[in-house]
Design a binder for these strands. Structure first.
Lengths: 184, 184
DNA sequence: GTCTATATACCGATAGAC
DNA sequence: GTCTATCGGTATATAGAC
């Protein structure tokens, strides 16, 4: 071995196991076994168990942070909001295992020593999707558009549809919601 | 003490801690300490740690099971679907801490030895909200209506709105979505 | 970079006195 | 119904050889 990518392989396997059975339930022994190394080898690459998930988190949330930075300097038009949703769906699909993990383990993620939490990023996203003075119902629709993307990406993979057609439909519904929200 | 309601008090404290910091991270020692008893006392009332959460789960999901049973014998009209959403929102509000726990700890809940999982119940609910032959977009809207209720109930308590007005707006958005889904 | 071996701590669960 | 005491297991993390 010694191919230099061990660190990356640890993160890949760890995220897979964390997403499948949760962070606390996944032991370092389990991660090490799947990689055919020992626990001690893991500690050469990461100082603590928490460092493993923090590293994954930072790598994969970078696209979302870039999206937030991009959104910050756009005009507050309907087309900007549409583009935010399109890009956000791409973020979700690109880092699906991580987002699924965050979605299903919020109680764990909340207590990690990470700069920005998942929830804080989502709230930042709302900043650009909703008008603070808009009526309550419009703000609910803006929230709903984001959660529609989440649910569509992580919850309904089970039926017999073409996945691409599904993702397209999910995006359409989200776009409809943000348009209704914007008009109000 | 010996007031006979110790079992209930254990469940209340446990759910509070589970929802706050997750199931695995909450130890029996912690639950016992908050109740000013010992771990061994807990074992008089519950055979295992898992029994505690299962008991809570069964008590609080009964309203949702009753809703599913009710829905099974209604005609598949738009008004039925509307009523399902109205009643489901009441279920969510009545058992908010439990649903928040399930929402944020899906990875844990998934592996509990419980008859029906949260996800299975949700899929059963969809049965009554969506037409299997409807176009994909309509089915996405049906899913979105339920997730709007979830997100509205658990995610956005943070701003300065009147909570009742917010809940009403959430329900309205969900009802709009199911109406659009039904028409397609 | 990876190993064996081990330190240290906490966990869930049980036994048995009161 | 609650206590003290403890068992057996597993967890994270470290020391030091190779």
């Amino acid at each position: 071995m010694a191919r230099g990518n061990t660190r990356q392989r640890i993160q890949d396997v760890a995220l897979e196991l964390f997403a499948e059975q949760g962070y606390e339930k996944t032991s370092l022994r389990e991660i090490a076994e799947r990689l055919d190394v020992t626990k001690a080898a893991l500690y050469y690459h990461f100082k603590t168990k928490e460092d493993i998930i923090i590293g994954i988190f930072q790598d994969l949330t970078r696209p979302m942070d870039e999206l937030l930075a991009w959104a910050a300097e756009q005009p507050r038009t309907l087309e900007t909001k549409r583009e935010i949703l399109r890009r956000y769906q791409l973020c979700l699909l690109a880092a699906a295992p991580l987002f699924r993990f965050m979605h299903e383990n919020q109680a764990t993620v909340r207590e990690l020593s990470i700069g920005l939490t998942f929830k804080e990023r989502l709230l930042a996203l709302y900043e650009y999707l909703q008008d603070p003075e808009a009526p309550t119902k419009a703000r609910v629709r803006a929230m709903s558009s984001v959660f529609t993307l989440h649910a569509g990406t992580f919850f309904l993979q089970n039926d017999e549809d073409d996945p691409e057609e599904k993702q397209e439909a999910v995006l359409e519904v989200a776009l409809d919601l943000i348009e209704q929200a914007h008009r109000a």
